[in-house]
Amino acid sequence: MSVSLATGADPDTLVVSGWSAVSPYGLGAEAFADGVREGQDGVRTVDAPDLGPYERAGRVPNFDIRTVLGRKGTRAMDRATALAVATAGMLLEQAGGGLAQDDPEAVGMVLGTGHGSVQSIMDFTRDSLTGERPFHVDPALFPNTVMNRAAGQSAIWHSLRGPNVTVAGGALTGLLALNYAARLLRRGHCEAVLCGAVEEFSTERAWLEYRARTGGPHQQPTGPLGEGCALFLLEPLGRARAHGRVPLASLLGSRFIAFHAPERAHEAVVRAVTEALKDADVRPDEVALLVPSDRGGPLGGREDAALASTFGEHQPPRLRLRRLIGDAGAASASLQLAAALTTTQADRPVVITSVDPDGQTGAVVLHAGPE
């Protein structure tokens, strides 16, 4: 392979030098890692009067916004924003080294989301329709209806003054955010990036997902939904070393392909994985782990078949996260990446794939392990 994390590796190699997550396993990277390694079921019976058509969901347990973040500045904060702010805080604390204090403009943020806070959008719209006047709404809640609320608030909360970007791309969102962050770094727009994705569970999202899956010509599995946030610190290897951070994985390659019909998903996945491996200069028989989106149904079957045909006789083990924590929507691919970092043997390549019913697929190749 052309890139490794061994001593003497190119200092411009982009590496993941820290990560954290909020998930159905609880707060922090350690809770998530333990849950994935032990194969714990993070999907539980929903203990609430009205959370939509699903009886079970992968919710972050006991996540109270004011308890986690304090009372100041949280009165009107939506759940998705709170998940992102909390995750960013844990990652920055773990990274240390004055990541944002020395030069706040050097650190950017790329955060993926599905639609922002669906609950906030629909609640605000409902209030404008049911109130005595359309403008009889709480203005403090309006910022929650904007898609970039979580990214912007996270940056403000933690004094990150570099580029601030919101990405939305369905199930692929986390991989697209990682790719966007890499482009920011390679073009010199910042020195380090917090990147990842967030998704909240709410009554409104549950009903929207349910109707989307059970209606139309291409019905999808209606398994339980999940929520969470995973963020990664992406920076050049030389910068990570200079600040005493141990690289966890290097980013070797990625590829994203669109397909116009569900029947073409197999071909698109094969092409995305094959081209990503070629970019990374990694042979299929060198890959130690596959982390597919595990969608289930016909689309998931095409993804699995595509991976089987791409790797031939060498079939790396597959880590299937969705069945453990539910469908985390826009946060799915970022949580897949976090799961890969917790289970992959050092000094081995790993491939993360995702496929979305809207007609896009992607693959990312990482080389796992410390220097």
Results as ranks from 00 to 15, higher is better:
residue 6 A to M: 01
residue 6 A to K: 04
residue 9 A to V: 06
residue 11 P to K: 08
residue 15 V to F: 00
residue 16 V to L: 15
residue 23 S to H: 05
residue 25 Y to N: 03
residue 26 G to T: 08
residue 28 G to P: 06
residue 29 A to V: 04
residue 30 E to A: 14
residue 33 A to L: 01
residue 33 A to N: 08
residue 35 G to S: 07
residue 42 G to D: 05
residue 43 V to L: 03
residue 44 R to K: 12
residue 46 V to N: 09
residue 46 V to S: 13
residue 48 A to L: 13
residue 53 P to S: 11
residue 57 A to K: 05
residue 60 V to Q: 04
residue 61 P to G: 08
residue 61 P to I: 08
residue 64 D to Q: 13
residue 67 T to F: 08
residue 69 L to I: 07
residue 78 D to V: 07
residue 78 D to C: 14
residue 79 R to A: 08
residue 89 G to M: 01
residue 94 Q to G: 15
residue 99 L to N: 07
residue 100 A to C: 12
residue 101 Q to N: 06
residue 105 E to T: 15
residue 107 V to Q: 02
residue 107 V to W: 00
residue 110 V to H: 03
residue 111 L to G: 04
residue 112 G to Q: 00
residue 114 G to S: 12
residue 116 G to S: 05
residue 116 G to Y: 06
residue 122 M to S: 09
residue 126 R to V: 09
residue 127 D to N: 13
residue 131 G to W: 05
residue 133 R to A: 15
residue 133 R to E: 14
residue 135 F to G: 10
residue 136 H to K: 06
residue 138 D to I: 09
residue 138 D to C: 12
residue 139 P to V: 09
residue 150 A to K: 01
residue 154 S to G: 12
residue 157 W to A: 13
residue 159 S to C: 12
residue 163 P to C: 06
residue 164 N to C: 15
residue 165 V to M: 10
residue 167 V to L: 03
residue 175 L to R: 01
residue 178 L to V: 11
residue 178 L to T: 10
residue 181 A to Q: 05
residue 185 L to N: 08
residue 186 R to T: 15
residue 188 G to T: 12
residue 188 G to H: 07
residue 189 H to G: 06
residue 189 H to V: 03
residue 190 C to Y: 01
residue 191 E to A: 15
residue 193 V to L: 04
residue 193 V to G: 06
residue 194 L to Y: 04
residue 194 L to R: 01
residue 197 A to R: 03
residue 199 E to P: 02
residue 200 E to V: 09
residue 209 E to M: 12
residue 213 R to Y: 03
residue 225 L to N: 10
residue 225 L to G: 09
residue 226 G to C: 03
residue 228 G to R: 00
residue 228 G to P: 07
residue 232 F to L: 12
residue 235 E to P: 07
residue 240 A to L: 02
residue 241 R to M: 02
residue 242 A to Q: 13
residue 242 A to V: 05
residue 251 L to A: 05
residue 252 L to S: 07
residue 255 R to T: 06
residue 259 F to P: 09
residue 262 P to L: 03
residue 262 P to A: 13
residue 263 E to I: 09
residue 270 V to P: 02
residue 271 R to P: 01
residue 277 L to G: 04
residue 286 E to V: 02
residue 288 A to K: 00
residue 291 V to R: 00
residue 294 D to N: 14
residue 295 R to L: 15
residue 297 G to E: 10
residue 300 G to Y: 10
residue 301 G to P: 12
residue 302 R to E: 15
residue 305 A to L: 11
residue 306 A to L: 06
residue 307 L to D: 07
residue 308 A to C: 09
residue 308 A to P: 00
residue 311 F to M: 06
residue 318 R to P: 01
residue 318 R to K: 14
residue 319 L to S: 13
residue 321 L to Q: 05
residue 322 R to H: 04
residue 323 R to W: 11
residue 326 G to P: 08
residue 328 A to K: 00
residue 329 G to D: 06
residue 332 S to H: 05
residue 333 A to M: 02
residue 334 S to R: 01
residue 337 L to G: 02
residue 339 A to G: 15
residue 351 V to Y: 01
residue 353 T to N: 05
residue 353 T to D: 10
residue 355 V to S: 14
residue 360 Q to T: 08
residue 361 T to A: 14
residue 362 G to F: 00
residue 366 L to M: 11
residue 368 A to S: 09
residue 368 A to W: 00
residue 370 P to N: 06
residue 370 P to D: 10
